[in-house]
Write a protein that binds this DNA or RNA. Structure first.
Lengths: 234, 234
DNA sequence: AAGAAAAATTTTGAATGCAATTTTTTTGGT
DNA sequence: ACCAAAAAAATTGCATTCAAAATTTTTCTT
């Protein structure tokens, strides 16, 4: 039983092997995306139990695809499953935050290194543009704009790494951090803001020189500082 | 898996808030673990469709918990879901391998850096012991033993990083690479073997000195070389 | 025979059903 | 009124069912 019938080669030739658009393809995929967004947007409080029936009604589906999505979100770390007591929104402890930031730092460090190997001149120019836009926001104390451009820059670096698995992993962890509201801090901690701005100058500089190892290091420390500022502010 | 105990202050002190042992607690959790092992062990050929009915009979369960596990394994990248055509074992392309190795390199680099911050003298002594055991295997061309100790060393470094999220992520990717058989190469490529051995000397040295940044770099390049050797050998 | 069309079978995706457990409500004693 | 025990209701975890789609088998045509 379950023997590997490897010689299906014949029909595999032209095959219509679409790896499932993952999102809207199946009900499961759609619900997964929608429910993840729903939670990340903060519609369910931390530690709150996930109301299956309500969500089913809300999405207009039965419990089966919803529960499939719950298992996936639990494996992503967004929910936790309690035996016979369903799923809860996982609370981010200080420890979780610390660990997550370090992992993000490691992933960004990797992204920076790989980006230096692969980024085009055009992309660097684009990062420069974003950088100066961000700088503008900094000068006029536009926190919202600053964070927008900041994210765009980091995202661009990850993109330039040309590594889909890295990008997916990065996105997954970034999603888990989305519930954390950073803005509040920087407003009061003006020193951290200018420090962050200086770090970004160094990031751009290393990227221009395509100094992978150096950029890798700067990015890790950049995240470390972000982490420190956040933990202190709490 | 990715667990961490919530200390939701507001609620109450003694609460019975067990975050679900994830493994044997529910049928879903148990099946998830067993099915993952089953696939990683290579019992289903790459690209082969996953026979739901057979697996249900084999595990003695209904399709519901099995299908929940399938969605999770797909989100882990072990399977792919094709609309109306079920799950297939995801084939690792050369591109996937390249990307996976780089991500592993990034994670090991991070682990090395964090380990230097947290490792105890006793743990370093343990790594030293493993290193010399491994060296012994190298001298007497015991490939199997070499790989055992090699894995133990890398695992020890990840442990010493004191970051559960990193450890879980690392384990997940390592699982995906478990299907790849490395041994075959090194036997023929004796140069790579001695090069790897030298790299391990450098790893141990940097770890002793707790030179995080340096160790980080060595580890990334170590994985890069492993990747190169593997791709060349294919 | 070979290939196309049709029919039968299997598989998939999702809804529904059901026993066990947990949670809430009610009740009764103090 | 307060609290514990009992009863009722809701929720959970998994099995089962069912329509739609895919796959295989059979039949028909040339």
């Amino acid at each position: 039983m379950l023997k590997s019938v490897a010689n299906n080669a014949e029909k595999m030739a032209a095959a219509d092997e679409r790896p499932a658009a993952e999102a809207g393809a199946s009900l499961h995929g759609e619900i997964l995306t929608r429910l993840r967004d729903y939670i990340v947007e903060g519609n369910l409080a931390e530690g709150e139990r996930v109301p299956e029936r309500e969500l089913c009604e809300m999405f207009g589906i039965s419990r089966t695809p919803l529960r499939e999505a719950l298992k996936v979100l639990a494996s992503e770390g967004l929910l936790e499953l309690l035996p016979n007591r369903g799923a809860r929104v996982r609370a981010l402890t200080k420890r979780d935050l610390t660990e997550l930031f370090d992992v993000m730092g490691g992933l960004e460090a990797l992204a920076g290194r790989l980006a230096c190997e692969n980024i085009t001149d055009g992309e660097i120019a684009e990062v420069e543009r974003l950088h100066y836009e961000m700088y503008g926001c900094y000068l006029r104390r536009d926190m919202h704009g600053y964070f927008q451009f900041n994210q765009l820059i980091h995202h661009k670096v990850v993109d330039a790494a040309r590594n889909a698995i890295l990008a997916a992993t990065y996105a997954s962890f970034a999603g888990r951090l989305r519930r954390v509201r950073f803005s509040a801090n920087m407003a009061r901690d003006r020193d951290r803001w200018s420090e962050a701005m200086r770090e970004h100058e160094a990031i751009l500089d290393a990227l221009r020189r395509r100094a992978g190892q150096e950029l890798s290091d700067i990015l890790f420390l950049h995240l470390r500082n972000k982490r420190r500022a956040l933990i202190e502010a709490q």
